[in-house]
């Protein structure tokens, strides 16, 4: 037996995990310390412990910190959702935006806003407050409906990974078109904030956003230990995983539902941030290599790092007119995907 090899891996693990916790902390710290308004590090620390000028405190505590934390949480949501979808569909290209889940969430939020807010505020130039508390839950309904369509296609017609993905793309494109049509029909001032949201943005995300999203994060992550083994088994042929003792349909459905809830609730708060769910699991797998118990922890850490650093780049590069995180991830994600595909081939 290769006891020696196993021990080596354990030793590696002991080093790798603290290294990643360190990197995640650095990414978070950078995002809090750096920004469009230049605040000296000493003042940032002072603000964090409740001292310093009122202006610095307002920028750090009320603006930057919640924004960074929301980014961190949605990063985890999208990355884990992508990891789950890639495992259960056995397709390396699966991701919440590709499978139509983000679009389902977007459409649900669009329809909800139309009926709840805008019907009561017919004037096209007044900008109504978005009903924050409802957004994650409403988005989840849309995401789950899209997930149901995926489930029906996977089992009803017994599609293979490739055809399943193509159907997901088609469903997503249709839902996206309807959502865009709906939003375009609203006119002027309302469009602006919705378009910002639609491109995936962390602009002006507050403690309220974090408060309404966090319950879904806690419940979702608490499910992970339960689905860890099934997720590995779902990557076999279903006849193999069932022969190993897995209730295939049950665990496929649970994992799919979890991925939908995580991705959709994040869409509800930050809009569809594309490519995070697609790229992060690949990066994690690439870095973990054979140690595949580490893929999931890496996915979590990289989800945080990618979104917080991506948002930092967007904030600093754009100046006053910042670049939304969804645009940053798309710009960096596409070439990165090509590199990964080449390395895998």
């Amino acid at each position: 037996m290769n006891v020696g090899a196993t021990r080596d891996l354990r030793a590696d693990n002991a080093l790798i995990l603290p290294a990643w916790i360190g990197l995640t902390t650095i990414a978070l710290a950078l995002s809090v310390f750096m920004g469009v308004v230049d605040i000296p590090p000493v003042d940032v620390i002072a603000a964090l412990v409740g001292k310093g000028s009122a202006q610095a405190r307002s920028i750090i505590i009320d603006i930057r910190l919640p924004r960074v934390l929301v980014g961190m949480v949605v990063g985890v949501h999208f990355a884990v959702a992508g990891f789950i979808l890639q495992s259960i569909t056995r397709n390396p290209l699966a991701d919440p935006s590709i499978m139509g889940i983000s679009q389902g969430a977007t459409l649900a939020v669009g329809v909800f806003l139309l009926f709840s807010v805008y019907i009561h505020n017919p004037g096209s130039n007044t900008l109504a407050e978005l009903p924050l508390a409802w957004l994650p839950s409403i988005a989840i309904i849309g995401g789950l409906l899209a997930g149901l369509a995926i489930y029906a296609m996977a089992f009803g017609r017994n599609l293979g990974p490739i055809r399943l993905t193509i159907c997901g793309v088609a469903v997503g494109a249709l839902l996206h078109a309807v959502a865009i049509g709906l939003i375009a029909g609203w006119g002027s001032a309302r469009i602006e904030i919705l378009l910002e949201w639609l491109s995936g943005s962390l602009y002006a995300r507050s403690w309220d956003h974090l408060r309404y999203l966090l319950p879904f994060t806690v419940v979702g992550l608490a499910m992970l230990p339960l689905i860890r083994r099934p997720l590995t088994m779902l990557r076999f042929d279903s006849s193999v995983s069932r022969s190993f003792g897995l209730s295939h349909k049950l665990h496929f459905s649970l994992a799919l539902a979890l991925a939908c809830c995580l991705a959709a609730s994040a869409v509800g708060v930050a809009g569809p941030i594309v490519f995070v769910g697609l790229i992060v699991p690949h990066l994690a797998r690439f870095l973990a290599g054979r140690r595949f118990a580490l893929v999931l922890p890496f996915t979590l850490a990289l989800g945080i790092v990618v979104v917080t650093l991506g948002d930092l780049v967007g904030r600093l590069a754009g100046g006053a007119e910042e670049i939304p995180i969804g645009v940053v991830t798309a710009i960096f994600g596409a070439p990165l995907l090509l590199v990964l595909l080449r390395r895998m081939a």
Partner: peptide
């Protein structure tokens, strides 16, 4: 235990 013809496994 059932072993299908040419079973596939996760690549790594």
């Amino acid at each position: 235990a059932f072993l299908p013809q040419q079973p596939s496994a996760p690549e790594e």
